[in-house]
Amino acid sequence: MNAVPLSWYLILSAILFSLGVAGFLFRRNIITVFMSIELMLNAVNLAFIAFAYQLQQVDGHIFALFVMVVAAAEAAVGLAIILTVFKNRTTLHIDEVSSLRN
């Protein structure tokens, strides 16, 4: 009873990723949608590190590190875009930001 099956880690990763997808689709606040993306990236990181453990190689950790770098860059640019959208539209509701739809 001392060893956790690897599949449990992968299932946890799948659950967190699906929660991120659900939040991305259901929520209407642009900031919450953005946080759902971060949740998905975290879930992918967990899968990377679980496989790195199984293969006994540090390469998976490097990939997770790069995902963190990309997430940080994405958060900086995305939040700047959110600020600009709010400045021009004074709304954070996704349905009201639809000028590219039609």
């Binding site: 001392n2 690897l6 599949s7 453990y53």
Partner: peptide, 18 residues
């Protein structure tokens, strides 16, 4: 995932030190 990942693959604390 349960079907494809063999149950012999397990994770113990301290099993990977790199």
């Amino acid at each position: 995932i349960q079907r494809r990942v063999p149950s012999s693959m397990t994770v113990t604390f301290g099993g990977f030190t790199g």
